[in-house]
Amino acid sequence: MTLMTEHPTISGGGPDSFEELLDILDELNLRDGFKAEIYRGNILVSPWSKGYYHRVMEQVCEQLRPHLPSDHSLTTGPFLFVFPGDECAYAPDIHVAHKRVFETDSNRLDGEGLSFVAELTSPSTRNDDLTDKVTVYGRAGVPVYLLLDMQEEQATVFWTPSAKGYVSHCTKPFGEKLHIPEPFDCTLDTTGFEAPRSS
Score class of each variant (00 low, 15 high):
Thr135Asp: 02
Pro92Leu: 09
Ser198Glu: 14
Glu112His: 13
Ser198Leu: 15
Phe158Arg: 08
Asp149Arg: 05
Ser198Ile: 15
Val101Leu: 12
Ala195Trp: 03
Asp149His: 10
Ala97Asn: 06
Gln154Lys: 14
Leu130Ile: 02
Leu148Phe: 12
Lys133Pro: 01
Trp159Met: 00
Thr121Ser: 13
Gly165Met: 05
His98Glu: 14
Thr191Ala: 15
Ala163Arg: 13
Ser124Thr: 14
Pro196Asn: 07
Val142Pro: 00
Leu114Pro: 00
Arg100Val: 13
Asn107Ile: 15
Glu87Ala: 13
Leu148Pro: 05
Pro161Glu: 03
His179Thr: 13
His98Asn: 15
Ala155Gln: 09
Glu119Asn: 09
Asp128Asn: 11
Val101Ser: 09
Ala118Glu: 10
Trp159Asn: 03
Thr190Tyr: 07
Thr187Arg: 02
Leu148His: 08
Val157Met: 10
Thr135Phe: 01
Tyr166Asn: 02
Phe174Asp: 03
Asn127Val: 14
Thr104Cys: 12
Leu109Trp: 09
Gly192Ser: 05
Ala195Val: 05
Thr160Ser: 15
Ser198Asp: 14
Phe174Cys: 04
Pro181Gly: 01
Val96Asn: 11
Pro183Ala: 07
Pro143Asn: 08
Thr190Asp: 08
Asp86His: 14
Glu176Phe: 02
Ala97Ile: 06
Leu130Tyr: 01
Asp132Pro: 00
Trp159Ile: 00
Leu146Gln: 09
Ser162Gly: 09
Phe174Ala: 03
Tyr137Lys: 10
Phe116His: 11
Val144Thr: 05
Ser106Asn: 08
Gly165Trp: 02
Ile94Lys: 00
Arg126Lys: 13
Trp159Asp: 02
Leu120Asp: 07
Leu109Pro: 10
Ser115Pro: 10
Leu178Met: 04
Gly138Lys: 08
Glu103Lys: 15
Asp105His: 12
Ser122Trp: 11
Phe184Val: 04
Ala118Lys: 04
Pro196Lys: 03
Val142Lys: 01
Cys88Ser: 15
Val157Ser: 11
Val167Gln: 09
Leu147Lys: 11
Asp105Leu: 11
Cys88Arg: 15
Leu130His: 06
Pro92Ala: 08
Tyr137Val: 08
Thr171Cys: 03
Asp132Phe: 07
Phe193Gly: 09
Gln151Gly: 07
Ala118Trp: 06
Val134Met: 02
Leu130Cys: 11
Glu176Val: 00
Pro92Ser: 11
Pro161Gly: 07
Ser124His: 04
Leu178Ala: 00
Leu130Gln: 14
Thr131Ser: 12
His95Thr: 14
Gly165Lys: 02
Leu146His: 04
Thr190Ala: 06
Lys177Arg: 12
Ala118Asn: 06
Ile94His: 04
Gly141Gln: 07
Thr190Arg: 09
Thr160Pro: 00
Ser162Arg: 08
Pro181Thr: 03
Ala163Asp: 15
Asn107Tyr: 07
Leu147Ile: 11
Leu114Tyr: 03
Asp128Cys: 04
Ser124Tyr: 07
Tyr90Arg: 14
Gly111Cys: 05
Tyr90Ile: 04
Arg108Tyr: 13
Ala91Gln: 13
Gln154Ser: 10
Thr104Tyr: 13
Lys99Leu: 14
Thr104Pro: 14
Thr190Val: 06
Thr190Leu: 09
Val167Thr: 07
Pro123Tyr: 11
Phe102Ser: 04
Trp159Val: 00
Leu147Glu: 11
Thr125Arg: 03
Leu130Asp: 06
Asn107Lys: 14
Thr131Asn: 14
Gly175Lys: 03
Val96Gln: 11
Phe102Tyr: 14
Leu114Gly: 02
Thr121His: 06
Val134Lys: 01
